[in-house]
Amino acid sequence: MAKITVGMSAPDWQLPDTSGQLVTLQQFQGQWVVLYFYPKDDTPGCTAEACAFRDNYEAFQTAGAVVIGVSGDDTPSHERFKSKYNLPFILVSDANNQLRRTYGVPATFGLIPGRVTYVIDPQGVVRLVFDSQFDFRAHVDKALAVIKATP
């Protein structure tokens, strides 16, 4: 499994969102993208992280960033999760974990899908890789800091 690191070009991908429409990284070229991988919809940690992104969504928009959450849950699960917590950003379904493997997102304890956030600049270069299974809020704070610090 390759591992995407800071300074590398982010690999493109194509996955369905909550409505079943295919979303690609390429369609956001010219914008900042916060691509965050999380273990599972509607679990305590994942809900805390998603709500932190929701609560700071306006700051991401102001900074010109798109937020995209990725997990192996199917699109109906994502739709319920998005609706229940009024999540304003994109959730995509990586049902076969191919994108997780492409980016090299590790599993915690070899079992739990990892929680890793990638910040991708408008040219498609990875500017942050933050891996923390338990510091949910830091994913938001670190992503915003990198975007705001770059002219």
Rank of each mutant, 00 (worst) to 15 (best):
A10L: 11
L15H: 14
T18R: 12
T18L: 13
T18Q: 14
S19C: 06
G20C: 10
Q21K: 13
T24V: 09
T24D: 08
T24Y: 13
L25S: 08
F28M: 08
Q29V: 10
G30Q: 11
G30E: 10
G30W: 05
Q31Y: 11
W32Y: 15
W32N: 08
V33N: 09
V33D: 05
V34P: 04
V34R: 06
V34H: 02
L35R: 08
Y36W: 13
Y36A: 07
F37I: 05
Y38P: 01
P39T: 12
P39Y: 13
P39S: 12
K40R: 15
D42S: 10
D42R: 07
T43K: 00
T43H: 01
P44R: 04
G45P: 06
T47H: 06
E49V: 03
E49Q: 13
A50W: 02
C51D: 02
A52L: 11
A52K: 02
F53L: 08
D55L: 12
N56A: 13
E58R: 00
A59P: 01
F60L: 09
F60Y: 10
T62W: 01
V66I: 13
V67N: 05
V67L: 06
V67Y: 00
I68R: 04
I68H: 04
V70H: 05
S71G: 02
G72L: 00
G72N: 01
G72D: 01
G72K: 07
D73I: 00
D74K: 00
T75L: 00
P76C: 00
S77Y: 01
H78S: 01
H78L: 05
E79C: 00
S83M: 03
Y85G: 09
Y85H: 15
N86G: 04
N86D: 13
L91V: 06
D94V: 08
A95Y: 00
N97Y: 14
L99G: 02
R100L: 09
R101I: 14
T102A: 13
G104S: 03
G104C: 02
V105F: 06
V105Y: 05
P106E: 03
A107N: 13
A107S: 12
T108V: 14
T108Q: 14
G110E: 08
G110R: 12
I112Y: 05
I112P: 09
P113M: 05
G114D: 04
R115A: 02
V116Q: 03
T117G: 03
Y118A: 09
Y118G: 09
Y118I: 08
V119G: 05
Q123M: 09
Q123I: 02
G124E: 07
G124V: 07
V126E: 04
R127C: 10
R127V: 11
V129H: 11
F130A: 09
F130Y: 15
Q133T: 13
D135C: 10
F136V: 14
H139I: 12
H139S: 10
V140D: 03
V140H: 07
